[in-house]
Nucleic acid binder design. Structure first.
Lengths: 362, 362
DNA sequence: ATCGATCCATTTATCGATAAAGTGAGCCAA
DNA sequence: TTGGCTCACTTTATCGATAAATGGATCGAT
């Protein structure tokens, strides 16, 4: 320590007698650069870089001097420059169909938090629940140089047709299943729906309707939830009435409301409804009220997701509660791992869940 | 056209007989660069840049050739490099207290859409409704080189103490008022709350409670909404009972529920409640149900924001509906303008609103 | 024929950071 | 004493794009 290799002209806090030119070079946007910090601390900018990135090979004394210079100058790294040189952005993309839907807002909050703990920022893309939007999100994420992408895919079923994804850290979150080709944190779609349906049956329901989204192929959320429903009915020896299977164009409150109205208007007797998501269940709840049916006295209702609103409706909504925090943490963990080790074999998780029994199935 | 200035060696689609070196230089991360496109099209990379950025000074024939080369090579601009050189990122930051709250999710969706139309991406920061978080968001946005920031500030009342903001394109959205020092798209806090309270009075309510957030200073949302409430009561000749003024620690559903319970338990007679936000109103609705009071028969209830859920509760919620789309569009427009012209005088907007009369005040 | 204006495209010099290679002083074993 | 090793920094050569300056035709006007 205490080398005196550095002459007086480069002592800490002094400006090196550099030519005018080196001042004018970075007159840029009035930003403080590493060069400035280096000059202030009397070291090279590479040393500043080493301190900023917490690499070793920097002596304690010099490190302190640099930190002090950073503090005094108000220096902030220029992320673009870092990215350009290192190829890393520190940003993870999160692509969701619609941030406005409570479930995705909820999920996003957890992802942002988990990513923050790992030192990543999160940029949100809205895909509009269309396959095209989801493919776009992948393309965008490369354009913007996200280090990786968490894709909450709903529609995108032929990802192999989009060459953009090759070798890119991509984690599927939620619904879709791609046969093990990607890291995937899945919802307990089948298991959860089965548990929900079984719960209704155990409460005495015998005419249980299910309100799902459009069934587009055999691997997606809708079909899996369907399967859980059918399995539960079979197990309880309840017959299947096709008139009680309802599908929606989108998973919105409005669609749920309309479905409930049509269900009641159709004249079929029902005493229980399994809704594909809580958002839809909120609509169903409203639709049943529109038709003068009481929940749970006339019809029992159960949802899926456990969005915050579900605990506050009147009556409060029973639901399948996947551990969203757990899902977000696993997803972030998986992208982070894959960014570091692109060739690790893919991992499939299914989120744990519990049934939240509230007033709508009392 | 049809210049033959370009020799055979640089004809379109041909590779220039460049040394091996120039291939190895950008072996980087397997990305296609402008250099590659330029070589393919037989032009300089500056020309490619001009085409990509739609600048003029490029002939039609060459432009076509470059576009074709871009298409064939699958080129995408490297945003980091562009940013480093030009100082622009094309990203606007949106800082909100909590993306999970429906109101902010709703708003974010509109901002993302409006920004997209102006060619900007949006990155979301969560501030946790704390002044520190909001100041952090400003600092972050500079670190990440957002071109500008839309800040939905709740707590940050002394922005002048944070030097970070000087000369930075910053637009306040929603609650706070900074005396004209920033561009500001404000909620119609006072006007809206006054209209809501008047509406309750006109429905016959005489014991109208208000449930607000914590009143921290005299310019923020809470106090403005308070003022609107008081003004309405005065105008209708209704006395003010301090026992009917309730304040919450945060604007959550849970807080609303507790407030409603305490309000009822306190034994004071009430026949109307003005809630500071719809989210709080959802909680109040639930709290009143907990205590066996019917809405609107026993107590009428009105909220503020018109979040999507409000139309689907039982009973559905009357509310003040500011035009969120309008707000998002103005906010994006203002940042965009300020990015282009940093010194333009500040602009203050107050959003238009309407009363949505639903079942909770029938 | 000469000059300037106009196009179109190319060259040059960076933007701010980092990977990788280089330097030199001190230290230890042979 | 000398070669080999560490340490603790410094130098060098980029990453991919763009602003600004430069080059060289072509054309109309004087």
């Amino acid at each position: 320590m205490g080398r005196d290799k550095l002459g007086a002209a480069t002592a800490p806090g002094q400006l090196r007698p550099a030519g005018v030119k080196s001042y004018q070079q970075n007159a840029g946007h009035g930003m403080v650069t590493m060069e400035d910090v280096a000059r202030l601390a009397g070291v090279s900018k590479m040393t500043v870089s080493n301190v900023v990135n917490n690499r070793d090979g920097v002596g304690d004394l010099v490190r302190q001097r640099v930190l002090e210079a950073i503090r005094r100058s108000g220096y902030r790294v220029n992320v673009s420059a870092r990215t350009l040189r290192s190829g890393r952005t520190g940003v993870i993309g999160l692509a969701v169909p619609d941030i406005e839907l409570p479930y995705f807002g909820h999920l996003a909050a957890h992802v942002i938090e988990a990513a923050g703990r790992q030192g990543f920022h999160v940029a949100i893309e809205q895909t509009g629940a269309a396959a095209a939007g989801e493919a776009d999100a992948i393309a965008h994420s490369r354009t913007l140089h996200f280090d990786g992408l968490i894709l909450s895919a709903v529609e995108l079923d032929r990802l192999d047709e989009h060459p953009a994804e090759a070798g890119y850290p991509l984690v599927m979150l939620g619904e879709q299943d791609f046969g093990g080709r990607f890291d995937h944190v899945a919802m307990p779609n089948e298991e959860g729906t089965k548990a929900a349906t079984t719960h209704l049956a155990d409460r005495g329901c015998r005419r249980i309707a299910i309100v799902t989204g459009r069934a587009s192929d055999d691997v997606n959320m809708v079909t899996r939830r369907h399967r859980g429903y059918l399995a539960a009915l079979a197990e309880r020896g309840i017959g299947i009435d096709p008139a009680l299977l309802f599908s929606l164009d989108d998973a919105s409150m409005e669609a749920g409301r309309e479905a409930a109205c049509r269900l009641v208007d159709s004249g079929h007797e029902i005493d229980g409804v399994v809704a594909v998501t809580d958002t839809v269940a909120l609509g169903v709840l409203r639709g049943l009220a529109d038709r003068g049916l009481r929940v749970p006295e006339d019809v029992r209702l159960i949802g899926f997701d456990d969005i915050p609103e579900s605990g506050f409706t009147v009556p409060s909504l029973s639901t399948v509660a996947p551990d969203h925090r757990w899902m977000a943490e696993r997803a972030v963990e998986l992208v982070a791992q894959r960014i570091r080790a692109p060739l690790r074999p893919t991992v499939q998780y299914i989120a744990p869940f519990e049934l939240m029994i509230r007033e709508s199935t009392r």
